[in-house]
Amino acid sequence: MAKLKLESFDAENNTALLSLDSSVYTLDVLYGAAYALIDRAYVLLDKQSREGGKGSRFIVHLRGKRKLNKDTIANLSGEFSNELLSQALRRKVVKQNGALIEEIVTQAIAGAAGAALPQDFAEEEDDLDFLDDPLGIAVPWEEKFSKNKKES
């Protein structure tokens, strides 16, 4: 079963239960789509193994923040289904164009941020004692060398 399925709708409790095969979309995709609903519904995700241990299903419990009816739950689950596909596609597209996107985004942020200024590090510097040598760069190489030799 590839498609998202509306398993049940309980109008009295304002809840619905959706399911989909966990092999269709990754958990990241499910997270992304579920996140898009949390302004309108309370969402609880679960996972069930299929009988016989072959594969599993994602279960999505929804409780509407407002009163749900057959139409609104159909809209909500339709939107969720679209969002699943969109999230999956987007991940694919981002992967395909990853190098170019990274270049553009890095340039845009570097262009906006500009070169780092001394005051940007002022806080960190305050925390450092200038006599501290956390990287060991003040240690004479002879010392380092002899220490390494001893260890080896």
Binding site: R90, V93, V94, L100, I101, I104, V105
Partner: peptide, 19 residues
């Protein structure tokens, strides 16, 4: 300019990342 939120917004606002 370099916050995680900025980076997320820039990526989201890049056409090449939209199906």
């Amino acid at each position: 300019m370099t916050s995680a939120a900025t980076r997320a917004l820039v990526i989201a606002g890049t056409n090449l990342s939209q199906p």
